[in-house]
Write a protein that binds this DNA or RNA. Structure first.
Lengths: 340, 340
DNA sequence: AAAATATTCGAAAACGATTTCGTATTTAAA
DNA sequence: TTTAAATACGAAATCGTTTTCGAATATTTT
């Protein structure tokens, strides 16, 4: 792999000093327009490409941003990254993307790889196993800008982008109640997750608000094994005091519910109504079509990127403010919560 | 952002020369075991993290691999990247991920950003608009290892990983014929794409093999606008000589077909049988469940990564061989092609 | 015309690692 | 005991930029 021409060689061709060429290319006021033109045209002619590592070393910036997500096979995260990229690419930033596969140990490894300046900032959504956050605190204290979205980490005083989890879950539960549900179950991944806590609160409050005493048996913590979850939900649906409504706090649990229902002689929405947080592209092609609470994923990504770009490109910016910014989700009612 | 301690500072603490410390950490034979121990323990104590850019500059490697895909919101590509990451992360490589959004101009921009050594290699699947490949040829000629998967570029003499597109399409079409289809349509994105050409060949040959003369009207080139495609397919289904079977060469066109069917009074599979290349996670939750040809996406990613790691880590490796490696897809028959 | 100020550029240091070359001390061979 | 070879480390160059400092020439001011 032959790298192209270097600044020094370019300077030699021009019979100029490297410093002059560097300044000319960076449009410094110290260089006359005449030489600037000469330098630029020669640079283009020889297809000069500055070495990013020399520049990074000198300037102590990497021009890249690390994005850490719990899983790739998930439209929500894909959309967020699209949103991030749409902003950052305009400013010459590159995206290093890592998946933790919902594994804290992997998350720690990834984070430790980012201690050395390889990325100028981190945008992340924590894994569902993450309760010990020392690795994140460590990174934060080194001064590396971190920004959370969706699954945030309250203990780190930085900016977080979420959706209105509480209200959305509240509204979703209310919708189920309005459709006649009496016993609503809440499906979640891990109680450690910020989103499940918030969504669970919304669920509980909606029940209480309707004068219904929540049954703890109906708040169900699932795993990452789809097969296990399907089994668990199937048993739930076959139990004598089965729920007649389900709020899935993440998409995959709604899908497991659909699979589980197939193994019973129940049907959606007649025997069981289902609503789910989901960013899948085809909720209306499911049978029945799925009522969803959809996050503005791409916008979340864009907002993350905007605040980050500001922090990284403008001089003397303060630390990312310790605040939680909420972008509202959208409830779309479909057949899975229909009364007929 | 305070970067950690440098090698020089570490050396000072140890009252050793930087060169010695460097060698000790790299386990050089020139350094005694005693000093190695001292150096390593001190490095751990002070949490020394080598600066990746100094190293990259000196060694002329980036330790990162660029992955270019046409879209993120697509399980197939997500799975491939998971596969790549599973191998490369073990070897200390980082993944720079770019999406072209099916836009050649974006693809060219991304590729031009990769001319300066920021990545040690490229793994990519070309955009559906890509017919002029000068930007890729350029990169190849600079000696940067490029590796294609799925949507390959025949003109670049390097290794390509695909699935058995021809055979899969042949078998898929044969299956439709066996289920009684008489007029089978082929849905594709762009004739420029290697996968559509191969899959189309398989489709045509299967028809001819069954003594059916292919109608060019039934080979339909779609766009990237889902709404347009749904409209197009709806019109097709409403035409007097409508097809009774559809082979979708990519997943999104099968989904558009499902949407289109909803707008007619036809039903799948009774009036129209559908089969599609697809890596979606829930083909069996569609209504009706979708018969799919599924690529071994993660394995493709892993194989790409393995050959690349070999090329990048072993000394004096030859160029990536100019060969096409095929990993077989799997046909899974579901309701959408059922006879009842 | 002399002095002060712009204007334009070059030399060299710096970023933080690796590596070539050189050298002092030990150890082994003659 | 002398010589040769092995061992263990240091000094300095190097990768390709940017930037500080310095200086020469040109321009303006007094």
């Amino acid at each position: 792999m032959k790298n192209g021409i270097s600044l020094k060689e370019l300077a030699a061709r021009l019979k100029l000093a490297p410093s002059t060429v560097s300044r000319a290319l960076n449009d410094s006021y110290e260089i006359s327009e005449a030489t600037k033109k000469k330098v630029i045209s020669m640079a283009e002619k020889l297809n000069y490409q500055p070495n990013p590592f020399a520049r990074s070393l000198r300037e102590n910036k990497s021009k890249s941003i690390a994005v850490i997500i719990p899983e790739r096979i998930n439209n929500f995260f894909a959309q967020v990254i699209d949103g991030i990229e749409s902003i950052t690419s305009e400013h010459g930033y590159h995206l290093l993307v890592y998946s933790t596969h919902e594994d804290v140990e992997k998350e720690k490894k990834i984070v430790s790889l980012l201690q050395n300046g390889r990325a100028d900032a981190i945008v992340m959504s924590v894994s569902s196993q993450t309760n010990d956050i020392s690795h994140l605190k460590n990174l934060y204290e080194r001064g590396l800008p971190i920004l959370f979205f969706d699954r945030v980490c309250a203990e780190i005083p930085t900016t977080k982008f979420i959706t209105n989890d509480y209200e959305s879950a509240f509204e979703g539960t209310k919708h189920l109640l309005q459709q006649g549900c009496k016993r609503i179950a809440f499906l979640m991944l891990s109680m450690e997750l910020s989103i499940t806590r918030e969504r669970h609160r919304g669920y509980l409050d909606a029940l209480k608000n309707a004068g219904i005493e929540p049954e703890s048996r109906l708040s169900i913590c699932c795993s990452h094994q789809d097969a296990e979850n399907i089994q668990l939900i199937t048993e739930l649906l076959n139990s004598k005091s089965r729920p007649d409504g389900i709020l899935a706090s993440v998409e995959k649990l709604a899908l497991s519910t659909y699979h589980a229902v197939k193994k019973t002689d129940l049907s959606i929405p007649d025997d069981l109504k289902v609503i789910s947080f989901s960013n899948m592209s085809i909720p209306n092609l499911l049978n029945p079509s799925l009522t969803t609470i959809t996050q503005p994923a791409e916008a979340i990504g864009q907002e993350c990127a905007k605040i980050l770009i500001k922090k990284l490109t403008k001089p003397r910016q303060p630390d990312l403010p310790n605040e939680v910014i909420s972008l509202p989700s959208k409830l779309t009612i479909r057949e899975s919560t229909l009364v007929r």
